[in-house]
Computed example of a mutant assay.
Amino acid sequence: MIISGDDSIGIEELKQFLCHHFEMKDLEPLSYFLGLEALSSNDDLFLSQAKYASDLVSQAGLTDCKIEYTRLEPNIQFTPQDGTLLDDATLYWHFVGSLIYLTNTRPNISYFVHLVS
């Protein structure tokens, strides 16, 4: 569980309350949690999934690929009859789910992830 806020006294009281009711550890400064990297400065908290995205690219075997910018046709509609069916769609589902999770910090890919999902 991540607890964050600007009321340090309230956060401490909440942590004490939770410790009395649940077995838990306080791991202190948040750095990496469920694929989210957290970097804090004075008053800001920045979330990044750079490592998560890099790991995803590696899992897909795309680390040596070149980037090519391709425009997508407006109002494109994919159907199950498009392309070749996969022998096992489980890997595809895994990558689509991972891309959906990546939209937490990269909302700019949401439309394209929606299309492939």
Rank of each mutant, 00 (worst) to 15 (best):
S31H: 13
F22S: 02
C65E: 09
W93T: 11
L14N: 03
I67W: 06
F33V: 02
L72D: 10
R106N: 02
D55W: 10
L14F: 11
S31V: 11
L62P: 11
S4K: 07
Y92R: 08
I11K: 05
V113R: 01
P74C: 07
D43Y: 00
S58D: 14
T70K: 12
L62T: 10
F78H: 02
Q81H: 10
I109A: 07
E12L: 05
G10N: 02
G61P: 12
T103C: 13
L18P: 00
P80I: 12
D43I: 00
Y52F: 10
F17K: 09
M24G: 07
S98V: 06
L72W: 11
S98K: 08
A60R: 09
G83F: 04
H21V: 04
L102V: 05
S98I: 04
D44Q: 13
E13M: 05
F46W: 11
I11F: 03
D43E: 04
H94R: 04
Q49W: 12
I67C: 08
I11D: 01
H21Q: 15
F46M: 11
A53K: 14
L91A: 14
C65T: 07
G97W: 05
I2R: 03
A53W: 14
L62W: 14
D43P: 00
R106Y: 06
L102M: 05
G5N: 05
L30R: 04
T90H: 14
Q59A: 09
T90M: 13
M1R: 07
L27K: 00
I100K: 06
G97I: 06
L56N: 05
I109K: 01
D88N: 15
M1I: 14
I76P: 05
H20F: 02
